[in-house]
Design a protein around this nucleic acid. Structure first.
Length: 209
DNA sequence: CTCCCGATAT
DNA sequence: ATATCAGGAG
């Protein structure tokens, strides 16, 4: 399988989406961490609808830890998987209090050790909050576009990440994920990709025009 | 691998 | 009717 040149892809998408950034709304590390946990298998639009009021009610890790489980479940219900997510958020909050003095930790091992936090979520926090780009965020969009563009043949997200790391300079990794996510939502959609409208269709191995 | 959740698009 | 949505745990 051929592969599109990564720098060219980044360059073109950067011009198309100069404002590419997270579309989750947050104002501190804990808020982004909660928003990312809620974002699993859910659109960012819906997450933002929920967090708009959630973040007024829960202002600290202590607030999440102290809440009755069932009440938190109702507060996040529209994001789906609400029982698992409420359990994750409370487990995360308690671990943050117990092990990190109520502050979101800044290293990969510490983040991944939190309940409900995997490499994808950890990479989002490290990149967007702390400017640390040792890894690459591989979510459903980054995985799909990386497969279609020929950056990797792997299906497992962690293997996809290992293939992407040498292809993307550390400085570009956070932007890279945002660019692929923007393009994935608008053009390179999962179900019916709009290849004729895609600015990468001349260098994409999967393009069908 | 399955389960978790439900709104939306196709 | 079914695939998909900023995944992670058991």
């Amino acid at each position: 399988m051929k592969t599109a040149p990564t720098p060219e892809v980044i360059d073109r998408l950067k011009k198309e989406y100069p404002d590419a950034d997270t579309e989750l709304e947050w104002s501190n590390p804990l808020e982004l961490l909660v928003a990312v946990i809620l974002s699993a298998q859910c659109t960012d639009v819906r997450v933002n609808q929920v967090t708009d009021s959630l973040f007024e009610k829960y202002r600290s890790a202590e607030d999440y830890a102290a809440a009755p489980r069932e009440e938190l479940e109702e507060d996040i219900r529209p994001t789906g998987f609400f029982r698992n997510k409420a359990k994750s958020i409370q487990g995360m909050a308690r671990a943050v209090i117990e092990d990190h003095g109520g502050e979101v930790p800044r290293t990969m091992p510490e983040l991944v050790a939190l309940p409900g936090v995997g490499r994808k979520t950890a990479n989002v926090i490290l990149g967007n909050v702390f400017g640390v780009n040792e890894g690459v965020v591989v979510d459903t969009h980054v995985k799909r576009l990386s497969n279609r563009l020929g950056f990797t043949d792997e299906e497992n997200p962690e293997k996809v990440e290992r293939d992407l790391i040498p292809l993307v300079g550390e400085k570009d990794r956070t932007l890279f994920a945002h660019l692929l996510i923007f393009h994935g939502r608008r053009i390179c959609k999962a179900r019916k990709p709009l290849c004729p409208d895609c600015l990468l269709n001349d260098i994409c191995p999967s393009a069908e025009i």
